[in-house]
Design a protein around this nucleic acid. Structure first.
Lengths: 200, 200
DNA sequence: ATACCATTAGGTACTGAGTACCATAACGTA
DNA sequence: TACGTTATGGTACTCAGTACCTAATGGTAT
């Protein structure tokens, strides 16, 4: 009696095959010049199956996000717990998010080659950047909820979350090499520190 | 000898016809259930012509943006001039953006019914929200450039711009009624004031 | 007024994303 | 082994977006 059924294992294999095939093809020919049919062929699945695993062609680019976000939310919950009740303090809320973000970025540095393709796709394709921005905002509502659970006021939670996104985006804009992202994120957050003066 | 040629006037008329037709149809049936062909028919232009005026179906939703952005950049330039050189001061940079944003929002309140449709479309269609977020980030690079021209350091300019977007988005999230947007934006910015303590 | 050039319009035909539907194959379980 | 459930892959369709071509229209000179 395996922890995962055969069905489930096959599903994971198909899913990974699609992701791998897609990233290979995107790396070789860019985003626009690769059709879903080609991805499906290389992954050895039907075209229909592709859309059963991914809502659209863009979605496969962000395939790893659910896991990343789940992990980040987990960390955030721990960090928020430690600082609760947060109340109206922007500094406490920001600290919690910063710690979670720091840990979330380890996944980024862990897979440098895929991160590089990811970064290149985002740089070259505005539609994908748009999708990322949307996902970050959706993620933001989750973060706000967690902060609110731990006593943060709605305004403080929302603003703190947006500020952290501002730091992340500032770092993305500034980064020329994907590997330098984490350190630039730290720098952005540090800037906010000087700005708040830890006053809350 | 008219200031605008007949050609140009016809172009404007066609463009406005398309925008009006699109907003009517979107208001009646939502975004997905309206085809480009239908918009073109109501606007009494060919389908090809639609795409000559707007790069894609989404773009017509944001038709007014170029003018708004141009106006905002103009105001920003004046406000930045007054405070130059900005240097490393986040507070000065933020003040300039805030003033420009305030003036930019007058356009929003001036056309309440279209703003309402706009807000509803954004709420109901994540792809459109994604597009808005992208446009805001593209707008952000323009703002950063202006600030840099007036002596702001790259990091200060970028962070200040992102912070102002954070305020705007926070307000959008909080607003239940489109008309309340400007006052919520003010509130967000005011929050930042208390946070920075005007220290720069 | 007319002839000529540049621009705009609109039609046709095509590719590819995304959806609906259906028949079949594979898995899970008794 | 037999049966219900779930995943698969194929077909056919709609619509967005692009390329290309031809006709029409405005601008401009003679």
């Amino acid at each position: 009696m395996p922890a995962e059924s055969l069905q489930e294992r096959k599903r994971q294999r198909a899913r990974n095959a699609i992701i791998t095939a897609a990233y290979e093809l995107f790396g070789e020919h860019g985003f626009d010049d690769v059709t879903v049919t080609q991805i499906a062929e290389r992954a050895e699945v039907g075209r229909t199956t592709f859309f059963r695993y991914f809502g659209d062609k863009q979605e496969v680019v962000f395939a790893d996000d659910e896991r990343t976000i789940a992990a980040l939310i987990g960390t955030l919950r721990r960090e928020a717990e430690r600082r609760a009740p947060i109340g109206d303090s922007l500094a406490d809320a920001l600290d919690a998010i910063r710690a979670a973000t720091r840990e979330g970025l380890t996944g980024w540095t862990a897979t440098p080659q895929r991160s590089a393709v990811h970064a290149r796709l985002l740089r070259r394709h505005p539609e994908l950047m748009a999708r990322l921005l949307l996902k970050q905002q959706q993620e933001a509502t989750l973060i706000v909820d967690v902060l609110a659970e731990h006593g943060a006021t709605p305004m403080a939670a929302t603003l703190a979350t947006q500020l952290s996104l501002a730091c992340l985006y500032t770092a993305m804009q500034t980064a020329d090499d994907p590997a330098s992202l984490p350190e630039l994120v730290e720098e952005s957050f540090a800037r906010l520190d000087g700005l708040t003066g830890r006053s809350g």
